[in-house]
Design a binder for these strands. Structure first.
Length: 828
RNA sequence: GCCGGAGUGGUGGAAUUGGCAGACACGCAGGAUUUAGGAUCCUGUGCCCUCGGGUGUGCGGGUUCGAGUCCCGCCUCCGGCACCA
């Protein structure tokens, strides 16, 4: 696209061709990462982080949005002359590369590294202010070798462990999934319905950090999006209550259950054990066994989707044993059912049908006794009563809860349980440990060797990185066990401890492990003395801002907080939260829906750039609305952005005064406007209201255009000042156009480091302000008044105003509210 | 069901200590210029209405001189969790 104008030609494509090589040569966005305490860089540091990318194909519209937004902040910090670290890297292990490799019969690395180069070239074209010297790829052995080192540290601390349990299994991808990767019963990646399998797998003990993950949110409050903090709180799911021990007839050890309502203990008339928990199997009597096993078989066959179906009728089976309620002394039956979860609490619950709808349903179906222990409110005609009320039917010789409110009853009963040794105060969490092993090839090998004699043996550190075997020519297709298991000369090793025959663990790590610490390695990306340079990280981190999508709310954004805390505990970090601030960009959609091939509503980033230029696409992304809002591409106008850039560019090229002309000699009204825009733009950027900042720049261009054509004139130095301010502000969003404007204004590249303008406080003072005069709260007149007018003078002026007199029309004035200098309200 | 967030013109959105609702754009309409226009420039544009005004920020109340903003009760949409005891 190229436009002839009376003064010059704005040709985006030519600008892109012209300036890219200049920037490559100047390399203006290098962080001074090596500056140490002994040789300090006096500038303030800023670490601008954006979620690194997965190399599947070229950049798309979503990348274009988040990068455009992120670049505003990064470039603003560069203009402020901070020492900015603005790195980029690739999340380059993962399933799509492996699946593409299987399809095309090539190695995942070929696909991965080709895409990385494609994306890197697109990022450069898109003019992102990244420091290219920091670039890292998680599939490089120098990266994942240190990840193996970290895994072994977690292992030593008991934070990485292996256990058998029922796990989420994706039948299509033929691999296990973490809880966080199961969305509404389906695989996060491919949407296939998830099933359950019993497998021995590696876990990170994130549950040890549940409370700290909650507590440290206090630091994030106000700086992280509310929905993310809420989602994490829900996910961690803290519950306060008590463990209660029940004596079971014929069993030496009592069975413990967790309850949030120990105040209803007098109403516990049965116990339910998760059918798939080992405890159910153990408690079951021989007489009941056939029935129990038949039931269990049915439970195992159910998919997650079936299990999650709403209003599903509860089913269960009597296990043949009885327990004793410690407060009533009554015997109760023990049942197994699938509405109790094996891996939450103790895998067993006390049935309190009077105050729990699930227990009520179960009791009703199987004819179990129901006792109310809370007085329902007047008119309550439901089943289980879960509202507030005072306790009833809750007394024995030693304790009397009757009449007490819920909280008081809970306190009293727990105290009693503790004093009698029947239970204790407890907190449980919904959060489960993070299942990290995956039965796939293209990932970080788990550095453990399994020896029949010695058990789990860590790969010795001097053998790290434990590289992936090439496997070229092998079948990578998913078979339920890792393809690595088939690489016999890689898998079969001598045990490092005893020298006997042993096998390497053939699973690879979840790629969310890779992304849990990449930001720590950026300051010194090729560091070879450890996973990251502890001293450099101390100087740069925590990050000052992190841009990325909210789809990671309980995935990456939880995991990287967990890693940060563990590394803090290991003495490697002096902070506990990885980033001070987080911004979630919205999604780019089209015609009201997510872009997809089947809907045929895809928008190609390359085509948009070809049609409108990089700058117009970036500007459109930034101007569309607040960063966290979705952008419907059908609602915005890259053509409009293009027209604006052209106007701005022409305005700058129309300036005729010489560089360095003293603005003080220029038109003061225009100068006031310019300085007001500078002042506001600064605040708007710092509060992430980039769209409004763009609106202010547009106003400045409009006002300056008018001043050139029918005001101060093209040679007024205030015009130059306005044009230069416009150029610098615009450089955050439209770097090509701004660079060319800067040259047109007689300056050397690069405008990116020209320096952020400062507003002259004297020019921010208004000469006169508009005062609104209301009668009965309705605007009836406007007055131009000096900003320091007194309340009395202003009131006199307002009451003398013609329009006010007409409306008041002789009625008695009851009250006059004066807020000098902006408002007067006359009440009659 | 529980926990969050949000509802403003034809459209995207402004207005963040309660003080001019609709900034800035898109679109549309009219005009200028042009061989032409997916170019450029100018003007207009919440709704109703007869100039004058009335009315208006999801709905209903309330507080206040004054409410998009605060309070109470609803409705709708979006996100998280969901048999978590």
């Amino acid at each position: 696209m190229s436009i002839e104008s009376r003064s010059a030609t704005y040709d985006v494509e030519a600008l892109q061709k012209k300036w890219r090589p200049v920037w490559e040569r100047l390399d203006p966005f290098r962080a001074d990462a090596q500056a140490t305490d002994s040789e300090p860089d006096p500038r303030e540091r800023r670490y601008a982080l954006t979620m690194y990318t997965y190399p599947s194909g070229d950049l798309h519209m979503g990348h274009a949005e988040v990068f455009a937004l992120h670049d505003v902040i990064a470039r603003y910090w560069f203009q402020r002359d901070y020492n900015v670290l603005n790195p980029i890297g690739w999340d380059s292990f993962g399933l799509p590369a492996e699946n593409a490799a299987i399809r095309n019969n090539e190695h995942p690395a070929t696909y991965t590294y080709a895409n990385i180069e494609t994306q890197a070239a697109s990022m450069r074209r898109y003019a992102l202010a990244f420091d290219w010297s920091t670039r890292l790829h998680t599939s490089d052995p120098e990266y994942y070798g240190w990840q193996q080192w970290l895994f072994l540290r977690f292992y030593e601390r008991g934070l990485a462990y292996r256990r058998a349990s029922w796990v989420n299994w994706c039948p299509k991808d033929q691999t296990v999934l973490a809880n966080e990767q199961v969305i509404a019963g389906a695989c996060e990646r491919c949407g296939t319905t998830v099933t359950k399998r019993q497998l021995t797998q590696w876990y990170f003990k994130i549950t040890d950090y549940a409370q700290r993950l909650l507590d440290d949110m206090a630091q994030l409050e106000g700086h992280w999006p509310v929905p993310i903090l809420t989602a994490q709180r829900n996910w961690i799911g803290r519950s306060e209550g008590a463990y209660v021990d029940f004596v079971i007839e014929g069993r030496g050890e009592p069975v413990t259950v967790f309850t949030t309502r120990p105040d209803t203990l007098f109403g516990f008339t049965f116990m339910v054990v998760a059918a798939d928990a080992p405890l159910a199997d153990e408690l079951c009597t021989p007489e009941q066994r056939p029935e129990f096993e038949a039931y269990l078989e049915g439970v195992k066959r159910e998919t997650e989707i079936d299990r999650l179906a709403a209003d599903r009728e509860k089913t269960g089976v009597f296990l043949g044993v009885h327990g004793v309620n410690p407060v009533t002394g009554e015997r109760f039956p023990v049942w197994a059912a699938d509405y109790v979860l094996a891996d939450y609490g103790t895998g067993a619950v006390g049935g309190a049908p009077g105050e729990d709808q699930r227990d009520w349903d179960f009791a009703e179906k199987y004819g179990l006794r129901i006792v109310r222990t809370v007085q329902p409110e007047e008119g309550f005609d439901g089943k289980a009563y879960t509202g507030v009320g005072s306790a009833i039917n809750s007394a024995n010789d030693e304790i009397d809860l009757n009449g007490l409110t819920r909280d008081e009853a809970i306190r009293r009963i727990i105290d009693w349980l503790e004093s009698k040794g029947h239970g204790r105060r407890a907190v449980t969490y919904r959060l489960r440990d993070w299942l990290l092993s995956r039965q796939r090839y293209w990932g970080c090998p788990i550095p453990i060797i399994h020896c029949e004699a010695c058990g789990e043996v860590p790969v010795p550190e001097d053998q790290l990185p434990l590289k992936l075997p090439d496997l070229r020519g092998h079948d990578l297709a998913p078979k339920g066990v890792s393809p690595l298991a088939a690489a016999t000369d890689w898998v079969e090793v001598a045990c490092p401890k005893c020298g006997g025959p042993a096998r390497r663990d053939s699973d690879t790590m979840d790629t969310f492990v890779d992304s849990s610490w990449y930001f720590l390695r950026y300051p010194v990306p090729h560091y070879d003395q450890g996973p990251f340079d502890v001293e450099a990280v101390r100087r740069w981190m925590p990050c000052d801002n992190y841009f990325g999508g909210s789809e990671h709310a309980v995935l990456h954004l939880l995991y990287f907080r967990f890693f940060t805390k563990v590394l803090h505990d290991m003495g490697m970090l002096d902070f506990v939260e990885p980033t001070k601030s987080l911004i979630n960009q919205g999604q780019v959609i089209n015609q009201g829906a997510r872009m997809s091939k089947s809907k045929g509503n895809g928008v190609d980033l390359g085509e948009q750039i070809d049609d409108f230029g990089v700058d117009a696409v970036r500007l459109t992304m930034v101007f569309a609305g607040p960063p966290s809002d979705d952008i419907d591409w059908a609602d915005v106008s890259p053509a409009g952005s293009y027209r604006f850039l052209q106007r701005a560019w022409r305005m700058a090229h129309d300036v005729t005064s010489a560089p360095g002309a003293d603005p003080a000699a220029g038109d003061v009204e225009l100068r006031r406007f310019t300085h007001r825009v500078v002042h506001e733009a600064t605040e708007l950027i710092e509060s992430y209201r980039f769209n409004v900042m763009v609106a202010r720049i547009m106003e400045l261009v409009n006002v300056t255009r008018k001043a050139i054509d029918s005001g101060a004139g093209a040679d007024d130095p205030a015009i130059r000042e306005a044009a230069e301010v416009t150029t610098i502000l615009l450089s955050l969003v439209a770097p090509y156009t701004a660079e060319d404007m800067w040259e047109g204004l007689g300056h050397e590249p690069t405008v990116a480091l020209a320096g952020w303008p400062t507003a002259d406080p004297e020019l921010l003072v208004q000469e006169s302000v508009t005062c609104v005069v209301q009668v009965q709260g309705k605007v009836r007149s406007r007055l131009q008044v000096p900003p320091d007018i007194s309340d009395g003078d202003l009131e006199a002026m307002a009451l003398a105003d013609e329009a006010v007199l007409r409306i008041v029309d002789g009625r008695e004035i009851r009250k006059v509210i004066v807020r000098a200098p902006t408002l007067v309200n006359v009440v009659v």
